[in-house]
Amino acid sequence: MAKIEITDLCKDFSVEGIKTVHAVKHATLTVNDGEVVVIIGPSGSGKSTLLRSVNKLEEPTSGSIRIDGIEVTDPKTDLRKIREEVGMVFQSFNLFPHLSVLDNITLAPRKVLKMDKKEADELGLSLLRRVGLEEKAKNRPTQLSGGQQQRVAIARALAMKPKAMLFDEPTSALDPEMIKEVLDVMLDLAKEGMTMLLVTHEMGFARAAADKIIFMDSGEIIETGSPQEIFTNPKNERTKSFLEHIL
């Protein structure tokens, strides 16, 4: 479906014009078509920043990001096209509170893809069925549990028929008993061959679904490997101590 190539990516933040934070330093990684790549690492290591650079929610300072060969950082590239093709799911769901669950899903297809209402509603309902929430179509997001909200957010992203999906800690804001229902939806997606780049600390999920694990620390990619390699036999000391901490 899609291939994401990140080459020598750097992102600096200037804090109040005095201090510079090097959030991402010379990161290089590839997510092949249909691959699931999981980024792990301590807080502040630049995972979100790296992820958000892919659909240009953050403007990279230097380096290159290619999606199916199209350079995202090229000012001539149509960003809206890129964002249509790369869906994103956030830690805090970010559903639109003033719209019903169904309208949350259909808003972008209708406004961006100019789909007519009937078609969009059908699409929306079929996606809600897929995430097991068809009966909640008319509810407001606030009337849903956290896990349900996140499933709606995934359906909303899928409504744009993306070729790849980004997830930034999709289960970190959830109560433990709701994590599984969200991970199950993500596992299904992975099985269907969706290209996925995600930040998560759900090691069970990473073990089951990831083709590659990337460990980041203080802005750098320290180690890349299969789940098997990273979890059972990490080469780097920092990876080792991080995993000891969280497992």
């Binding site: 809206r80 869906g87 994103m88 956030f90 509170p97 808003l107 961006v112």
Partner: peptide, 29 residues
């Protein structure tokens, strides 16, 4: 919240679309 704009942007909505369909209705309330 900033997340509202980000979610709309990530869905491919333009600044104007985001403002009209996401920000404004919430601001009114």
């Amino acid at each position: 919240p900033k997340g509202q704009t980000e979610a709309a942007t990530a869905l491919g909505m333009s600044k104007t679309q985001t403002f009209i369909h996401v920000i404004l209705p919430q601001t009114v309330k």
